[in-house]
Design a protein around this nucleic acid. Sequence first.
DNA 1: AGACTATTTTGAACGCGTTCAAATAAAACA
DNA 2: TGTTTTATTTGAACGCGTTCAAAATAGTCT
Lengths: 224, 224
Amino acid sequence: MSPEKIKKSEETRARILEAALRTFQQHGFERATMREIATEAGVAVGAAYYYFDSKEAIVMAFYERAQREMAPKIEEILDNARTPESRLRGVIAYKFEYFAPNRRLMSALSAHADPEHPLSPFSKDTAAIRDEDIGFFARAVAESKVKLPPRISPYLPRLLWLYQMGLILFWVYDHSHEQRRTKLLFDQTLKMLLLTLKLAGLPFLRPMHKLAADLLDAVYEEKV
Amino acid sequence: MSPEKIKKSEETRARILEAALRTFQQHGFERATMREIATEAGVAVGAAYYYFDSKEAIVMAFYERAQREMAPKIEEILDNARTPESRLRGVIAYKFEYFAPNRRLMSALSAHADPEHPLSPFSKDTAAIRDEDIGFFARAVAESKVKLPPRISPYLPRLLWLYQMGLILFWVYDHSHEQRRTKLLFDQTLKMLLLTLKLAGLPFLRPMHKLAADLLDAVYEEKV
DNA sequence: AGACTATTTTGAACGCGTTCAAATAAAACA
DNA sequence: TGTTTTATTTGAACGCGTTCAAAATAGTCT
C-alpha cells in the first residue's frame, strides 16, 4: 500500500473517531447513537463497524490515543520533578487537565468494575495501558527515601495507580463547581498518603506489615 | 380490592421475579432476555413491564427483598455479639452467605459507579436501603471503646459501609475457589481496620486528623 | 342481570447496537 | 490494457430492552 492510501483509510478512521468524540461530548456516551456518529462522519453505520469493533471500542481508541499523547509530557514531569510528592501531583494533575474536555466520556471507561469487560481498567484489553501507567508510578517513587517493608514495596506502584483510578472515578461524577471537591480530595489524600508512607516504618506500625503483605499477596495473586 | 385479588396480582409479580432470578442465575444478567423471563413466567413481555419498570428494576426488587429478609438476622447478630470485631465480622459474613446463591447477579448492582444510575449503590433510588444499612454499621460500633476524633467519628458508619461495598465488589468478581481470596481480604482488612481504629488516637497520628476530617467533609458534603 | 370502570394482559412496533451479504472502489497482476 | 484479488462501503435485517394502543379480564354500581 502506498502512503497516500494508508492515509485515506486512516483518515476515515480518524474522521469517525472525531465525530464520535464530538457526539459523546454533546449527548454523553449512552445517548449518542452509532447512526448519528456515522452520519456526522459522513459514512454508513457499517463503516463505523469496519473501523471499530463496537461503540465501546471507540472509547478504547480514545483511551489509547490519550495514553500515547500524554506519555512524553509525563516523562518530562517525572524528569523535572524530584520528590515523590511533586511527581505524583504533577502526573495526576496533568491527567486531569488532559482528560477535562472529555470528562463525561470517562464515565464509560471507569464505570466498569468487571475485569472481564473490555473497557474495565482491570481488563486484559486495557493491560498494556495499565502496565505503562503503573510504570510511571514506579518511576515517581523510585530513587526516593520512601522505604516500605520489602514484601509491600513491590506493590506500591500498583497501589498508587489504584489511588489514581479512584481519584478519576470520583472526578467523573463530581458535579461540584469546577470539580472543587475532587481537587480537595486530591490535595488531602496525597498529603495523607505521603505521611502514611513516612510513618509506615515506625515500630508501632510493625503489626500492620504482615497483615498488609498477606493481604496484597491475596489481592494481586495471579493464580486462581 | 379483596385480599384474594391483591394476592393474585402479587403472585404474578412474584412469579415474574422468581423467573427472572432463575434466568439471571442461569445466563447472567446481561444475557438473560426479558422475552425469556416472560416466557419462563408464563406471561407476555408487556406483563413483565407492567410489574417492573425495567430489567434493572427487577434487580432492584431483589435487592429490596434481600434487605428486608436480612434485617432481622442482622439485628440478632448485633444483639448477640459484643465487640465491634465480632459484630462487623458477623454482619458482613452473613451478607456473603445470603447473597451467595445470587453472587453473579450482584454484579448488576455493584458494577454501577454512576450515582445517577438507579442501580448504583450511591444513587437516590438505593438511598433507603443504604441508610438502613449504614444504620447497622452505626450500631456495630456504638457503645464501644472505639474513640475517634470528634470530627471524624460521625463518618465512621458510612466508611464501614463503603468498606463492605468494596468487599462485595471484590467478591463478585473473585473467581478463586470458593472465593478464598475474598475471605482472606476480609480477614486481613478487618484486622487492619480495627488496629487502625485503635492506633488512630495515638499522638503521632494527630497530623492525620485534620487532613482526614477536611477530606471527609469534602467527600460527603451535600452542597454542589 | 347489564353497563361502566379499573386492572391486567397482550404482542406489534420502535430505536438501539450490531451483523453481514452484497455492491463498490482500489490495488495488484497479466 | 483487462482481469482478478483485496479493501472499503453500504444499508437491510437481527435481537435486544422498552413502549403503547388495544384487548381481555375483574370489580363496581344500578
